[in-house]
Amino acid sequence: MWVGQALARRARWRWAEIVFWLAAFAALFLPAGRHLILNEIAILALFALSLDLILGYAGIISLGHAAFLGLGAYAAGLLAKHVTDDPTVGLALATVAAASLGFATSFLVLRGSDLTRLMVTLGVAMLLGELANALPDLTGGADGLQGVTMGPLLGLFEFDLYGRVAYAYSLTTLFVLMLVARAVVYSPFGLSLMAIRRNRLRASALGVPVHKRLIAVYTLAAAFAGAAGALLAQTTAFVSLDFFEFHRSADVLLVLIIGGAGWLYGGILGAVLYEALQDALAAVTPEYWQFWIGLFLVAFVMLGRERLTGGMRGLLARFGR
């Protein structure tokens, strides 16, 4: 029956996807030297994927997504410092901790205007930053959490100086969570999110329980961001108050927007482009690259970001069929 086939086609793996993942894993065998930056990209991509779930799919603007990144990072860092240095346990704990915070704060973003949501998300991140600052005995305060050391991954692979194991770890986590995100996006749940983003009232008139779905996706996205925070803390062996800062939330927004919100690979593409952009700008003007990022952002919005990323997506889609 063609209806069944047409539905199945939505979730089919595209060639471009398969090629991308093969290439990403093949990069593990590159000669040492690029893996630290690849690791950074993978973590940023995961963080942006997390934001995509709420912004791109559910339409919630957040200026405080760093709250979950920071919480995950501190959870993983503290666990490593005080309890166990097994990275996967830290990753699991960070994910659960961030998901709990996501669930608790999801009720705050259900109602109100975009402005209230911006303020509340921003406020939650600032609140956690202040809290971490106020508990120096636990968090190290402004000095950051020192002395985080990680044991071998799965008891087998020691983290090396060149970041190869780190990259393998982050990339695998990204891949697994991408599989989850993929399932979610193409599921009935994902479809109802797309409806909510487009028109809440209309979605509820089709029987979609809007609040329930938003709570679920916000919690899920928080879990993803917590995982990204854990990866960042574990692979750099450092956590600081900076993790909660506004610029983290702003950067990830920027990353997602460059790559295009509302499709699964927007975060990954954005992370790659962002790192490349930052790299190129830092080579030209090491101190003032933020100026050019800002200019880029202004120009990007003025020229119509939908048009720009839409064109790119169209190109990729045609290539990927």
Binding site: L7, P209, R213
Partner: peptide, 21 residues
């Protein structure tokens, strides 16, 4: 997709995330 959305909700499957539509 629009019909699938309505029918999934009708059948109580709208919250399912592990299977594709």
């Amino acid at each position: 997709e629009t019909l699938a959305l309505a029918i999934d909700e009708q059948l109580g499957l709208g919250g399912r995330w592990s299977h594709a539509v």
